[in-house]
C-alpha cells in the first residue's frame, strides 16, 4: 500500500499532488549522483587520462592533494582573498547604501556610478586591476571589493526603502526615541536585505576570484586549475572544480541560515 502510494507520488505530475510531499529525500539524490558518476566512469573508459580521468583516478588524486596539503593551501589562499575583499566591500557599501536609501539627493549622486559599473562584469575590470595594483594580492582583493560593493550597496538601499512607515509610527506612538527607532525597526528591517545582497555579491565574487587566479596568481584554486593544464593533469582539475562547488554551496547555505537567523519576523516573504 505504502509502496503504491510512493510510486504514485513519484510519477504523478507534481501539480496534481495534493500536498507538497517530497518522497525519497535521501535515496533519490544519491541515485541521481550515482547515475551521473556511472556515466562519467563509462565515458572515461574511452578517453585518455589527459582528456577525461575516471572517477577513481580523480578520487585518488583528491586524497593525494588533501594528504599533501596542497588542496588546503590553495583553498585557504582563495578564501582569504575572498574574505578580505568582501569585508572591505561590505564596510564601505553598507553606509553608502544607507545614505542612498535615506537621501534622494545622495542616491542620485551615486546613480551614475552604480548604474554604469553594474553592467561591467568584474572580470573585465581585471585588466585595470592588474595595471593599477600589479599581479599581487591587492588586485584580487580589489576585484572582490568591486563585486561585493555594488550588490551590497543596492541591496541595503532597497532595504532602507522598504522599511514600513507603519512600524516606525507604531514604535513612535509607544514612546520610542530616535535611537530606539533605529535599533528596533530600521536596523532589523535592513539587515536581511543587506545579507541577501552579500550572498549575491559573494556568489559573483566566487566566480571572479577563480578567473583572476587563472589569469594572474601563484596560489589559489584557480591557479591550481590553470597550472594543471601544462601537464594535462585533468584529475587535479576535476578535484579543484569539485572543491569549488562544495565551497560555493557551503558559503551560500551559511548566508541563507544567517538571513533566517537575523531576519526573524522582519523577513520579507520572498526571502529565505
Amino acid at each position: 500500500m505504502a509502496a503504491t502510494r510512493a510510486f504514485d507520488l513519484l510519477l504523478a505530475p507534481s501539480w496534481q499532488a495534493s500536498e507538497m510531499e517530497r518522497p525519497g529525500a535521501v535515496v533519490l539524490p544519491v541515485t541521481g549522483a550515482a547515475i551521473l558518476i556511472a556515466i562519467w566512469g563509462f565515458a572515461s573508459l574511452h578517453y585518455d587520462v589527459t582528456i577525461l580521468p575516471s572517477p577513481g583516478q580523480a578520487l585518488e588524486e583528491g586524497i593525494d592533494l588533501l594528504a599533501g596539503g596542497e588542496l588546503i593551501f590553495h583553498a585557504l589562499a582563495s578564501l582569504q582573498r575572498l574574505l578580505i575583499g568582501f569585508l572591505i566591500g561590505c564596510a564601505i557599501a553598507v553606509p553608502i547604501g544607507f545614505g542612498m536609501g535615506l537621501s534622494p539627493f545622495f542616491r542620485r549622486m551615486m546613480e551614475p556610478i552604480t548604474e554604469f559599473f553594474r553592467y561591467i562584469p568584474a572580470i573585465a575590470m581585471v585588466v585595470f586591476a592588474l595595471i593599477w595594483f600589479g599581479i599581487g594580492e591587492a588586485s584580487k582583493v580589489f576585484l572582490i571589493f568591486y563585486n561585493t560593493f555594488f550588490s551590497v550597496a543596492l541591496a541595503t538601499e532597497a532595504g532602507v526603502k522598504h522599511i514600513s512607515q507603519v512600524r516606525i509610527d507604531a514604535v513612535r506612538s509607544l514612546g520610542a526615541n530616535r535611537r530606539q527607532v533605529l535599533q528596533f525597526v530600521v536596523v532589523p528591517s535592513v539587515v536581511p536585505y543587506a545579507i541577501q545582497g552579500m550572498r549575491m555579491g559573494m556568489g559573483r565574487a566566487f566566480a571572479t576570484i577563480v578567473s583572476a587566479e587563472i589569469l594572474a596568481a601563484n596560489s589559489g584554486l584557480g591557479f591550481l586549475i590553470f597550472s594543471s593544464r601544462e601537464f594535462s593533469r585533468m584529475d587535479t582539475v576535476i578535484v579543484a572544480i569539485a572543491v569549488l562547488g562544495v565551497l560555493g554551496i557551503v558559503i551560500d547555505r551559511l548566508f541563507r541560515r544567517m538571513t533566517r537567523m537575523v531576519g526573524g519576523n522582519y523577513l520579507p516573504s520572498e526571502m529565505g
Binding site: L28, I35, G245
Partner: peptide
C-alpha cells in the same frame, strides 16, 4: 517528482561551480 528528486542536488551542485573553472 522522480526527476526532481534525482536531479535537484546534482543541478544545485553544478550551479555553484564558477563556469570559468571549467575552462581547462
Amino acid at each position: 517528482p522522480l526527476a526532481r528528486g534525482m536531479l535537484y542536488s546534482v543541478v544545485e551542485f553544478f550551479r555553484f561551480i564558477p563556469p570559468i573553472a571549467m575552462i581547462v
